[in-house]
Structure formats: C-alpha cells, structure tokens
C-alpha cells in the first residue's frame, strides 16, 4: 500500500461520486434510472486489487453516499461487503478480458439493488417484487453495465499506471 495509491483512489472515489450525482443523476438519466457509478468503481477496484482494497474503497465510497443521505453507515456497509466479496474473485479470474469484469459488475449491481429492495421496500410492506424488478432493478443493471464498458477501462488504465510506477520505484531502491 503506497501513499500514492491511497491518494489516487481517494480522488477517484470523490470524482466518481461527483460525476454520478451531478451528471448522471441530473442530465443523463432515463426516467429516473441512473447507472451506479460508485458500484462500478468499488467493483473494479476490488476485482483488480483484491479483497482488502475492495473492502476499503467500498467503505469509503459508501460513506460518501451516506454523508449526503443523512443516515451514516448504511450504504457504507453494503458497499463494503460487495467490495469484499468481489475481491475474493480477484484470485480466481484473470482480468485481461473485459467481458468478465462487466459480468461481475452487472451481477453485483443486481445483488446490490435486490438487497436495497429487501431492506428499504420489502420491510415496509411493498410486496410487488415483479414491478420493482422490471421498472427499477433490471433497467438499472442494464444501464450500469453499459456505462461500465467505458468506465472500467478508465479505472484499469489508472491502476496499471500506479502499478508500473510502484514497480519502477521499487527497482530503483532494491
């Protein structure tokens, strides 16, 4: 864990959040459906770096959302577990093919939305799961996958550059 990596990820998380709330939620939304940029960020970091960075970026990213929703800890918890679980896949898959991360992002977005439905809606006696599935969850997953095709390579590039720089500086001092 170099300090550079932490700072760059910190800036990336803030950028992701601002981009999401200001651009995608206000300008590029289709009938209220928005891509979950923060989830793409957390899942990408977890997939590229493993469970601990995934868990930490999930916690931090979720916390940013919490600050603006007034209830601290809720999103941080969900994102953290998603980051942790996806991080476990880091050892299983080789990340060269873009189809694998996009699939993982889609699946985790589905799980994320489903958990939100259960926690926020089912517990308040909103039982019509078919309606919410067709009108909120599925559109959100599709849109997220679409945006992930462009956003994941961006995060991948940045992480590759950090990795290169770290290796170079390590060689210098060994």
């Amino acid at each position: 864990m170099s300090i550079r990596r932490i700072i760059i990820n910190f800036i990336l998380a803030i950028l992701t959040f601002v981009l999401h709330t200001s651009v995608f939620c206000r300008v590029l939304d289709f009938g209220g459906v928005t891509p979950d940029l923060m989830l793409i960020f957390v899942t990408s970091v977890a997939f590229l770096r493993g469970e601990k960075p995934g868990l930490l970026s999930g916690f931090f990213g979720g916390f940013l959302i919490d600050i603006f929703s007034g209830k601290l800890g809720f999103y941080a918890l969900i994102y953290m577990y998603i980051g942790f679980l996806v991080g476990k896949l880091n050892e299983v898959f080789y990340s060269q093919n873009i189809a694998i991360p996009i699939t993982i992002i889609s699946v985790s977005d589905f799980v994320y939305n489903f958990v939100l439905y259960v926690l926020l809606f089912l517990f308040r006696r909103r039982f019509d799961i078919g309606y919410y599935m067709m009108n909120t969850i599925i559109p959100s997953v599709v849109y997220t996958a679409l945006v992930a095709i462009f956003y994941y390579p961006f995060i991948l590039k940045i992480h590759e550059r950090i990795f290169e720089k770290e290796q170079r500086s390590e060689k210098k001092f060994v």
Partner: peptide
C-alpha cells in the same frame, strides 16, 4: 440552486 440528485432510483432527494 439544485446541485446534485440522490443516488439511484429508490429514493428521491437532492442537494
């Protein structure tokens, strides 16, 4: 002025 909207579709709030 409205500067940001809430995360996702589930709830509706803005900043």
């Amino acid at each position: 002025t409205v500067i940001a909207k809430s995360q996702g579709k589930w709830y509706d709030s803005f900043t």
